[in-house]
Design a protein around this nucleic acid. Sequence first.
DNA 1: TATCTAATTAGATTATAATCTAATTAGCTT
DNA 2: AAGCTAATTAGATTATAATCTAATTAGATA
Lengths: 190, 190
Amino acid sequence: MQLDRIVNFHKTIGDKTRIRIISLLKEGPLHGQAIAGKLGLKPPTISHHLTKLKQIDIVYQRRDKNTIYFYLNKDKLERMALEITRIGDNEMFEKFDITEGEKAKVIRNFIDGNGKLKALPAQRKKKLILLEYMLRGLEHGKTYKEKEINEHIQQYHQDFATIRREFVMAHFMYRQDGIYELNPVEMWPV
Amino acid sequence: MQLDRIVNFHKTIGDKTRIRIISLLKEGPLHGQAIAGKLGLKPPTISHHLTKLKQIDIVYQRRDKNTIYFYLNKDKLERMALEITRIGDNEMFEKFDITEGEKAKVIRNFIDGNGKLKALPAQRKKKLILLEYMLRGLEHGKTYKEKEINEHIQQYHQDFATIRREFVMAHFMYRQDGIYELNPVEMWPV
DNA sequence: TATCTAATTAGATTATAATCTAATTAGCTT
DNA sequence: AAGCTAATTAGATTATAATCTAATTAGATA
């Protein structure tokens, strides 16, 4: 139920320690012990709070060797924070169940006979549908060089730079040092 | 402390019953028993939740005979909901402590030698300072006819309609059936 | 494989808070 | 003033959750 999502978001945010964590991660990613140190709390406590923040999807993690870095998902935070102001507006319902039929229709409208993208729609929901469509063929867990991503995108559109940037901004994929990787599905935008 | 305000806001919002109340009041004001009935809870429970919602200032009340009607302060709700996204931005600090010196400066800039308002600033903070300034002379607890309010405003500016509307929109005053009244100070915008 | 580091889980303790019934208060209305 | 209605307060019960220590797991490196 939609209501519970909103309740849960605010219940999670409504804790001083967790807001302090959000505040820290806003500056950039940190690993667990660093957070514990800065807040003067023990690692298990931080683990506990990070679990909750991950559950509502405003924090995600990346492992580097033995250390796990935690990142703030600013977009998601912003979108969730605004939902309370739209509660009851029936826009809300439309927004959360996109059927496969609707997806197919949007794809039909924006992909031409040769499988090329005609244009990237401005409307957020439609744009996401097409971005997701263009991910097909990329594998989870595999890393790609920027050149490989560019080539992949070019089967749909010549402007690979724009679309590559959209992939990253929408959290479909992650980039570090010119290496790209698909984000886990749970991290994708709604 | 600023942080506590934000924590408290979300802690308050993060409750199913309270979100349901917000959702109801979004449609329009209701009295306590009506809310209790619609939610299937007892009046003391509703009282308890309304107290919390009033504490964070997103609900206010008006008495009509024996019945108290509760209203949602949508503006405040929206502003508070957004604060979490701005946490850490130092804009935040500037925003919450307006000194008397700053106020005086803004008033000096926008009120001419004859005590007339030159123009209503577009910047929210400055606008609020001037609106508050123009309330001077009106009494709390007293009711005013629209004509009286118009006359009061005209000592500052000829366009009383715009300014009167701003007073109401900013929650400095309240109108019902053409009768105006100052809102309590706690209800004023930040 | 053994060892090191960082993170998580288990389990206990303590604090917070949602809801109810019963009693009380505030403000009409007659 | 007496009685009525709606709201609040007091106090008890029950559920939820923040934090800690101790034990465990996951992954990297030597």
